[in-house]
């Protein structure tokens, strides 16, 4: 019913974002999760270095192997990150809004000369800031560890690919932060919203890869007389799997850190004719390859944030 409001919706935004970031940096919750991430990261990279040293070969992108090499029983650094980054993001965001309700600080903060927009966006940006700092620190740590223990500097392209990987991880974490934020506005109790977010996390990281083939089998059954139905089923399965941000992130890191990756889907033999198997793609083409995945994650982030935004704007302030 109000057509126009005066004043900037960004008043107080940086204050809120910085305060949130400072709170996160001081909170035990985040310290715990970060210690977990750090330990697994160092462990997996250390194991990868051992593996790389043992199998010295002519590899143009030795440095990127740091991220992707797995040595039993430890999975690779990338796998760990894909698994644990959502946890960090959820820990940062699951009680963003309903926590304010429960502490009864919401109406007091909103009675300051700021809009609600600033509170929600500030909390989101504060979380993103913490994630960015953590990921950057982690990335530098791994790179430094690699330089020290492998004794060779990364090439320019490896750095570019590494930075792109860093950015993709950041967007991926942003998606999960938006998931947590959305739950924190919709669900009234922080414990419930944490459980909801963790359920979504488990569903997409653990169960989705199992569910996708099942659903695809039901939606697009294979006709034994028509080989194209098999292709169709694989396409459907891939489309379903890509609903999970975990799949998108996995494909993104695969293409970025493994330059030999030429396609993220099916390739027919005739499409490969004339290709030099195992020859690396230039960085720009790898980026083109992952562009849909990256755009998909950014879109998911925006949609989830919009859901949180709309539900927060419609809420009554009184607790």
């Amino acid at each position: 019913m109000t057509s126009r409001r005066e004043g900037s919706p960004f008043a107080g935004l940086s204050t809120i974002a910085l305060k949130e970031a400072a709170d996160h940096m001081n909170s035990i919750r985040i310290h715990l999760v970060m210690v977990l991430v750090l330990l697994t990261a160092i462990g997996s990279v250390y194991a990868a270095i051992g593996q790389i040293k043992a199998t010295v070969g002519e590899d143009q992108f030795l440095f990127l192997r740091l991220f992707t090499t797995a040595q039993q029983p430890l999975p690779s650094f990338v796998f760990f990150l894909g698994f644990l980054v959502p946890l960090v993001a959820i820990a940062l965001g699951f009680d963003a809004i309903n926590g304010e309700y429960n502490r009864r600080t919401l109406s007091r903060v909103l009675s300051q000369p700021i809009y609600r927009d600033a509170l929600l966006t500030g909390k989101f940006l504060g979380g993103l800031l913490v994630i960015a700092i953590c990921l950057l620190a982690l990335w530098l740590l791994v790179t430094g560890l690699g330089m020290l223990l492998l004794g060779l500097p990364p090439s320019g392209e490896e750095i570019a690919r590494g930075l792109a990987f860093l950015f993709a991880s950041f967007v991926y974490a942003g998606v999960w932060l938006a998931v947590a934020l959305a739950f924190s506005t919709i669900v009234k109790s922080p414990a419930t919203s944490a459980l909801c977010a963790l359920t979504a996390w488990l569903l997409f990281t653990v169960f989705w890869p199992m569910l996708a083939p099942l659903i695809a089998g039901a939606v697009a059954p294979i006709d034994p007389l028509d080989p194209m139905t098999a292709v169709h089923q694989i396409h459907v399965q891939q489309a379903i799997a890509r609903i999970s941000p975990n799949t998108l992130y996995g494909e993104t890191t695969l293409a970025l850190l493994n330059p030999a990756t030429r396609s993220l889907g099916l390739l027919f033999a005739d499409q490969l004719s004339g290709a030099l198997m195992g020859a690396p793609l230039p960085f720009s083409l790898s980026v083109v390859l992952i562009w849909p995945q990256l755009a998909g994650m950014i879109a998911a982030l925006l949609v989830l944030f919009t859901i949180a935004y709309v539900s927060f704007q419609r809420q009554e302030i009184r607790a």
């Binding site: 005066e6 900037s8 700021i114």
Partner: peptide
Amino acid sequence: LRRPLAVK
């Protein structure tokens, strides 16, 4: 409603 920031 129109000028919430100025009022608050």
